[in-house]
């Protein structure tokens, strides 16, 4: 056997091994992500009988029906409100807290550990927590408002169409601000000291230091974080749903909650698939935009 032959044999073995190592994962990914996605896309052009699952092609009828529903448009609007408010406030709050935790302060390490806690808390627990705090009879929030004479009688916040979504937003901010803090602190810890010192020597004040050194340094991470948070908040189902099950009167129904409602409560599987497809397209557009922005931020840094 020549060296070359042996080498060839060896590579062949490598190749077999590699394929064997990858195959189970590939099958699972195809079966549980790619196939359902395509299936959903495909199903959005069919009329589907909920009981028998018989499929009848009906072109873009599902989409046309959907676009005529005020509920679809209001859910889309609520999704946009939920995503934009939650991510923007999260980002500002997270940025502020991470800058604070970057200062030389006593107890900083304990504080760092503690502010990350909300990120651990499961959605069901967050829902229980806020339902309890906001409860009209025993809730501590209503009691506090009454003690300060801000209201005369308790308000059932989560049963109130005007307030419900805002409290879901508050909970979303509460749970995911730690994620921003984590990302920002990691980046702040590797900020080049020379940059800050040079700026200080040039007589830069704290605001200028932040504006011209810290912020551009953080910018690429800010963009990535914003991208991830936007996508994750947009697709978030459990926190929103568990808060008030989409109610009162659809007041907390965002697009993911709408999909569940259409598929399993209203038994309109075709339109549910159409909503899912629209969500998917919106998500792809979003990530596209962000990647362009990210590249720009990276370039600016240089």
């Amino acid at each position: 056997m020549t060296v070359q032959q042996r080498r060839k044999n060896f590579e062949l073995n490598d190749r077999t091994l590699a394929v064997m190592m990858v195959t189970p994962s590939l099958i699972l990914i195809l079966v549980f992500a790619i196939f359902p996605m395509l299936q959903g896309l495909y199903a959005s052009f069919f009329q589907i009988e909920p009981a028998t699952l018989a499929m009848k092609p009906n072109g873009i009828e599902n989409y046309r029906w959907l676009f005529k529903q005020p509920l679809f448009w209001s859910s889309l609007l609520r999704s946009l409100l939920w995503v934009s408010t939650t991510t923007v406030v999260q980002l500002i709050l997270g940025l502020a807290i991470s800058l604070l935790l970057h200062q030389e302060l006593k107890g900083r390490n304990i504080a760092r550990g503690l502010v990350l806690f909300p990120y651990l808390i499961p959605a069901i627990v967050i829902s229980l927590t806020w339902r309890f705090i906001l409860d009209p009879t025993m809730g501590v929030f209503n009691r506090m408002l009454m003690d300060f004479h801000l209201i005369n009688r308790p308000i059932a916040f989560l049963a109130n169409q005007k307030f419900a979504l805002w409290f879901v937003i508050l909970a979303g901010i509460w749970k995911y601000t730690p994620f921003i803090i984590l990302m920002m602190l990691a980046r702040l810890q590797v900020i080049p000291v020379e940059l800050e010192e040079a700026a200080r020597l040039d007589g830069a004040g704290p605001w200028q230091l932040f504006r011209y050194i810290t912020l551009p340094w953080l910018m690429p991470v800010i963009v990535v974080t914003l991208l991830l948070r936007t996508i994750w908040t947009f697709r978030q189902f459990d926190i929103v749903y568990l808060f008030a099950f989409g109610g009162p009167l659809f007041a907390t129904t965002t697009l993911p909650v709408l999909i569940r409602y259409l598929a399993f409560d209203a038994r309109k599987i075709g339109p549910a698939a159409a909503t899912a497809t629209i969500m998917l397209v919106l998500m792809l557009v979003l990530s596209w935009g962000y990647f362009g922005w990210y590249n720009k931020a990276e370039k600016n840094l240089e």
Partner: peptide
């Protein structure tokens, strides 16, 4: 792609 896929999109087909 699979990682980015929202579970809510997958749940009905699955």
């Amino acid at each position: 792609l699979a990682y980015m896929m929202p579970p809510i999109i997958l749940v009905v087909p699955i």
